[in-house]
Simulated assay, not measured.
Amino acid sequence: MSASPSSPPALASAQNALRFGNFAIGCGVMVVGGSLNDLVGSLQVSVALGGQLISVGAVFMCIGAPLLAALLSGRDRRWLLQMTLAWYATGHLLCALAPDYATLLPLRALTMLGAAVFTPQAAAAIGWMAPPEQRGRAITSVFLGWSLASVLGMPLHSYIGEAFGWRWAFGLVALLAGLGALWVGRALPEGVKPPALSLSRWAEVLTHPVLMAIVLVTALAGAGQFTLFSYVAPYYRQVLGAGALEISLLFMAFGAWGLAGNLLLSRRIDRIGPARAVRLFLAGIAVGQLLWPLGQSVMLMLIVMVPWAFGTFATNSAQQARLGAAAPALAPALLALNTSAIYLGQAIGAASGGVIVDLQGFGALHGVSLGWTLLAIALSIWAERRLRRDPDHV
C-alpha cells in the first residue's frame, strides 16, 4: 500500500470523523442485541429467532465486505464512506418502521452492507494517509469508535429498548449515521484512493496460508464471543433477574472495560507488536468465558466479565493492525477479508448460540464460546511462529 502521508492536523481531523463513523457503525451492529428483549416481545418471536437478525446481518456483512471492496476499490474514499453512512442511516430508519419480523429481516440484511464497506475502507483510508511509523496506531485509533459504541451505544440501546421500545433504538442509529455522513464529508480530503488490487493480487491473498490463517483467527474469536454475547440481554434478565437499569449498567461496564483495553492497545501496539497483543487479549477473553458461570448476581457478573471485556475490542483492533503490518501492499484486501471474518464469526456464534438456547438453555453457552476462543489462540500462535520463521515470504 503506497502511502501518501497527510499533515498532522488533516490526519487528526480524518481520524476523529472516521472514529465517529465507526461509532455509528458499531451502534448499528449492536442494536439488535441491546434491544432484543423488547424486539422479540413486540414482534412476537422467540429469543432464538430474534437473535437470527444478528446472524443474517452478519452473513451479508461477511459476504459483502470482500465483494464490495473489489467493486468499489477505485472510488474516492471521502465519497464512498459518506455514501455508506447515508445508506446505513436510511436502512436503520426503514428498519425502525418495519411492521413485522418478515419485513425487518431483509431490511436488516441490506442495511448491514453499509457496515461491510465502512469499517475496512475507513481503516485502509487512514492507513494510507498516515506515515508508516504511525500506521498501526492510526488504524487502532479509528477502531476505538467500536469500543465507544459498546460503552455508550449498547447500554443506551438496552435502556431505550426497555423503556421506549426497540424502534427508538434503531432510530437513534439512523441519527448517528446521518451525522457521521456529514462529518466524514467535511473532514476527509479528496483524493484518498488506496491502490486498487488486481485479480491476481486478490488470488495471492486468498491462497496465502499464513495470511488467511490470521484472518481465520478473527472469525474464530468472533464465533467465541457472539455465541454468548448475542444472548446476554435475555440471559441477564432471565438468569440474573436484572431489570432495565441493571442490564444497561452491565452493558456499560462491559463496554468501559473494552474501551480501556483498546486505549491501552492503541498506546502500546507499536511497542509490543500486534501478534503478541492478539495472543494476550485472546487469553483474557478465554479466562472471562471460563469464569462466566460464577457471575450468579449482577455484582458478581460485574467482576467476572472484566477479562473478557478488556480484550473484546482490542483483539479486533490488533488483528487489523497485524494484517496491515504483515503485508502493507495487500492491506485493502486483507482488511476487507478481516471485516468479513468478524461478521462470519458473529453469524456462526449467533446461530450456534441460538441452537444451544433452544435445546439446552443458557447454561452451555459459555463452554462453546470458550472452545471457539481456544481454537483462535492455537491458530494465532501457529501463524505467529510461521511469520517469525519466514518473515520475507509475506
Rank of each mutant, 00 (worst) to 15 (best):
M299C: 11
V304L: 06
G64F: 00
G34I: 00
G324N: 12
R77I: 04
L290P: 07
R186P: 08
A383M: 08
R386Q: 12
V173E: 04
A203Y: 12
M1E: 00
G311D: 14
D390E: 13
G64Y: 01
A10T: 09
L11C: 13
L282F: 13
L110S: 01
V355L: 12
W372D: 00
A318T: 09
G28E: 09
L72H: 08
M112H: 02
A89H: 13
W146S: 01
T84H: 08
L337G: 05
A181G: 15
S369L: 11
G353C: 04
V306G: 00
L80A: 09
S380F: 02
S317E: 14
A24N: 07
A203R: 13
M154Y: 09
H393A: 14
T207N: 06
L107H: 02
P66I: 07
G324T: 03
P9A: 05
Y343R: 02
L18M: 12
A17I: 03
V357E: 04
A187Q: 10
A115W: 04
V217R: 12
R19L: 15
I54R: 02
L68E: 12
L300R: 10
Y101A: 03
A86V: 14
G114W: 03
Y88W: 14
A174K: 10
W382L: 15
G288M: 09
S297H: 06
A65E: 08
L104C: 06
G57A: 05
L68N: 11
R279W: 11
L107M: 03
L206W: 10
S297N: 02
P131E: 04
A102L: 15
V394P: 07
Q360M: 11
Q52K: 06
R267D: 07
G34L: 02
M83R: 11
A219T: 12
A341P: 15
